[in-house]
Design a protein around this nucleic acid. Structure first.
Length: 511
DNA sequence: AAAAAAT
């Protein structure tokens, strides 16, 4: 479906073309006409299929440039998402002359007040700071025509709901209400439709809730070996742009420190950091200054960095919806992605719950051995040598090279080079966490029975526990990386200065 | 049980 057929004006069509969009995605094609008609819309579609543009374009279309009031309000669950959404709206609205601003906590409120005074027609914000502005009377919502709850199921969940209700009270009754998300549990949808009038539900039907652009794997691990196993996968898969999700802020700190010690260009992000730091890290990740972003669920939703190749769930999610959003950070806008989920022995029920929601079976992988990991590193190093030979100015080193070749065996010299190009396995200890509570959900006996690996999974040799009941033999495939689908990795995330710490380091548990 | 979100 072409954007031109959706009833958008020339200004917007030009902005869409500038952005490089060719055809409307299904969610855009189906919701944009409804939204343009002024209907309330509940839009559900897979991650990475352009939901932001789906609500942004008709909102911009509806903006009356002669009306000095805020005409549309978008509420987002995280600050980073608010920033991103505002900037996408601004890009689309530039041609028409539409102004959008974002307001969120942790950053100078006076500056935000100034930007609100410049009469934006569209405001994007996080709940707490929006309420702050409302109370200060620096934001007036009494002329809002369209209200959007982005990541609607998150915004309507407990923890956000009270704030959302307070904000909605400030918006006129006869507004248009739009709810968008990739996930929408039934009980939350019931809450949501109470804020809507004659809601038009658009659900882009897909066999699976997750996009098939992401290959989903899981690995059974013990807690104490998880960090080492993850970095072995790094060695073998040579992931280029990577997000590692952890369950808690402290784990994010520990894992990101550990990765730094191993020589990866990694940084952690979570809600206890200052907003300046959060923004800096997002910027570094986008600008390729960081290869591995270690994050809590603060980065699980909405963040659109289409170059992300791998998502590692260092800690599995308890909340299946959260899993869908996490792995949706990759496989965006038609690109391919890989997700890797580590499952501790007592977490099997979470794996089952996730698969029940996504309707996708994750494929089991065996943890690589240290030898296999080294082999992976050597493969990367070998490829790197080719490009280094092209790039290095040889003249400066030629004489020393001659001397060394006269003195030593060439094979020894190259071995030294390779040993310098591979990563030292600095010892890193990540603290254990309290095990997750055992879920004995009532009424959980119905239907789905994974029957993985058969009941008798003791002593199965090296942790390969795959081969669940319905497999087709194809899930014996081992590593997802490095196969036929990616030759563009540069250096597998290795810091380029060649300096690697080699002391052992334990990250202490503060308790 | 955790994370997010105002100071």
């Amino acid at each position: 479906m072409k954007f031109r057929e959706l009833g958008l004006s020339e200004d917007l069509l030009k902005a869409i073309e500038d952005k490089g969009f060719k055809e409307a995605t299904p969610i855009q094609a189906e919701t944009i006409p409804l939204t343009l008609q002024g209907k309330d819309v509940l839009g559900q579609a897979q991650t990475g299929t352009g939901k932001t543009a789906a609500f942004a374009l008709p909102i911009i279309e509806h903006v009356d440039l002669d009306n000095p009031n805020v005409q549309a309000l978008v509420i987002s669950p995280t600050r980073e998402l608010a920033i991103q959404t505002q900037s996408e709206i601004s890009r689309f609205g530039k041609e028409k002359g539409v102004k959008a601003v974002s307001v969120f906590g942790g950053s100078d409120i006076r500056r935000q007040i100034q930007s609100l005074k410049r009469r934006p027609q569209i405001v994007v914000g996080t709940p707490g700071r929006l309420l702050d502005h409302i109370n200060r009377k620096t934001l007036k919502l009494d002329h809002v025509k369209t209200l959007v709850l982005d990541e609607a199921d998150d915004m309507l969940d407990m923890g956000f709901l009270d704030d959302i209700e307070s904000i909605i009270k400030q918006v006129p009754e006869d507004r248009q209400t739009l709810l968008f998300s990739a996930t929408m549990p039934a009980q939350i949808k019931r809450v949501g439709v109470q804020f809507m009038k004659d809601p038009q539900q658009v659900t882009i039907k897909a066999k699976e809730l997750t996009t098939d652009l992401v290959d989903q794997y899981y690995i059974r691990v013990k807690q104490f070996e998880k960090f080492d196993i993850m970095t072995r996968f790094f060695d073998i898969q040579a992931p280029k742009v990577t997000i590692v999700f952890c369950r808690t802020k402290r784990r994010v700190d520990e894992v990101s420190k550990g990765l730094l010690l191993r020589g990866y260009r990694a940084a952690g992000i979570h809600g206890d950091l200052t907003q300046n730091r959060r923004s800096q890290i997002m910027k570094d990740f986008k600008n390729d200054k960081i290869d591995v972003l270690v994050a809590t669920d603060v980065a699980a939703r909405g963040i659109d960095i289409s170059s992300v190749t791998h998502v590692y769930n260092y800690d599995i999610t308890q909340d299946s919806e959260s899993y869908v959003h996490r792995i949706g950070r990759t496989g965006r806008a038609g690109r391919h992605g890989v997700s890797m989920t580590f499952v501790e022995p007592n977490e099997t029920s979470y794996l089952r719950d996730i698969e029940k929601l996504t309707k996708v079976r994750m494929l089991p992988l065996k943890p690589p051995s240290a030898d296999e990991a080294l082999k992976g590193q050597l493969e990367v190093a070998t490829k790197e040598i080719g490009s280094l030979i092209e790039k290095t100015k040889m003249d400066a080193f030629a004489d020393s090279a001659e001397e060394l070749l006269a003195q030593y065996d060439a094979k020894d010299l190259v071995s030294v080079l390779l040993s310098k190009m591979t990563r030292n396995q600095v010892k890193v200890h990540i603290s254990a966490e309290k095990p997750l509570p055992n879920k004995n959900k009532r009424g959980h006996g119905g239907g789905y029975r994974g029957n993985r690996g058969g009941g008798n999974h003791r002593r199965n040799g090296g942790g390969y526990r795959g081969n669940r009941g319905g497999g087709n033999g194809n899930n014996r495939r081992r590593y997802s990386g490095n196969g036929n689908h990616r030759d563009d990795h540069k250096n597998g995330g290795r810091s380029s200065n060649g300096k690697r710490p080699n002391k052992s380091f334990t990250i202490k548990n503060k308790d």
